[in-house]
Write a protein that binds this DNA or RNA. Structure first.
Lengths: 203, 203
DNA sequence: GAGTTGACGAGACCGTAAGTCTCGATAGAG
DNA sequence: CTCTATCGAGACTTACGGTCTCGTCAACTC
């Protein structure tokens, strides 16, 4: 009751906050350093000590705000990447599908996203918690693709008995497979052919 | 993996081999222990010390014959798995493709292959040399699938302009994607639908 | 302004696991 | 019998994620 000038929207807090406050510049420095290192070392492991030193920060500062190294890396990536994935609307299923596939493929070619993703997947192989977060991160992108397919099915551009989840997995399966192995390109031509293949249209 | 001491057909060898010889039982014990541990701990990391202790063997004995932990694991898996992958011949492209896809999917359900593969991929994420070996291991299986598709294309069951490499990647992409994420089944029904999807046949 | 509180940089410290080194014992070849 | 390479055992080194401590410093309260 004795806090009339306190922060608003905090009717429950027994004590709002005293003491030194979090330094935003420090947060940025850590995220920037992480992204820089993650992008430079393509796939190579990035250590916590390196991030802290690069950011000019103590390790404890890092662990005060993030529970693990993986969450820092993921935060650094998502902070840079767009959280929103716009669903295309070109009027035709073929056009929409081609747009989404192209956008997915494109994301793997623009640094620093590509090397960062590679590093992140490497880390996720050892860190189950990070693997969950990464799944959640990709969920939005999967949902957009599935939405496009469902719309096409409603309009009758896609057979009613097609397995949409399988089609989504065909796109993301090819994407990750080629992205991680690097044995075949993920360019526009590949996007064209995959789109045609999925819709049963031999070009 | 390492068998440089071939007594015959060695006109160049300055000294054939003196001293105590390699104990075959020891080799088997290591491989068996590795496979057992790899299968039990589904995806969980398997340490070198554990393998050595389980096999009743010194660590140095292990490192005398294998250059790294990953190669031991891969050797344990390939020693168990069939190196030869028979190409099916059902007479029709659809039948052959369905058979290969089904076999690929099936391999992920029979222990100890499935958990071993999972562990191996985890290790490969950190060990580039193991990643190469794993790629080489899967190469034979990819080749079989591509062969089936090429045969179908020659017979005219598949449009001449279809991208066979992309089709192979669709199969293995879906396989690995679902195998590692586990968000969707890899059963016979999925194999049916994937086969139909690839051949443009709405069932 | 004085005092309290919590963030800060720095770095010692711990646990774990891959890989190396050493040692005494042992087994096959000559 | 001797020479040499393998064996089991385990100490040791290195690397890294994560924790703990310490002295300092900034923001908020009284």
């Amino acid at each position: 009751m004795a806090d009339p000038a306190g922060p608003p929207a905090s009717p429950q807090g027994p004590r709002p906050h005293t003491g030194r406050q979090r330094n935003e510049a420090t947060r940025r420095a850590i995220l920037d350093a992480a992204l820089r290192l993650i992008a430079d070392a393509d796939g190579a492991p990035v250590t916590v000590d390196t991030i802290a030193r690069e950011a000019g920060v103590g390790k404890q500062t890092l662990y005060r705000w993030w529970p693990s190294k993986g969450t820092v890396l993921l935060d650094a990536l998502t902070d840079h990447a767009e959280r929103e994935v716009p669903a295309p609307d070109t009027g035709s299923l073929h056009g929409d599908l081609r747009a989404v596939v192209g956008a997915v493929f494109e994301s793997a070619r623009t640094p620093p996203t590509a090397p960062a993703l590679r590093t992140l997947v490497r880390e996720a192989a050892r860190d189950p918690q990070l693997a969950d977060l990464l799944r959640e991160f990709t969920q939005a992108r999967r949902a957009v693709l599935r939405e496009v397919l469902a719309r096409g099915q409603e309009r009758g551009d896609l057979a009613a008995d097609r397995d949409l989840d399988l089609m989504v997995d065909q796109v993301y399966g090819v994407f990750w497979y080629r992205f991680l192995l690097g044995h075949a390109p993920l360019d526009g031509a590949a996007a064209d052919r995959l789109t045609d293949s999925l819709l049963g249209e031999a070009s």
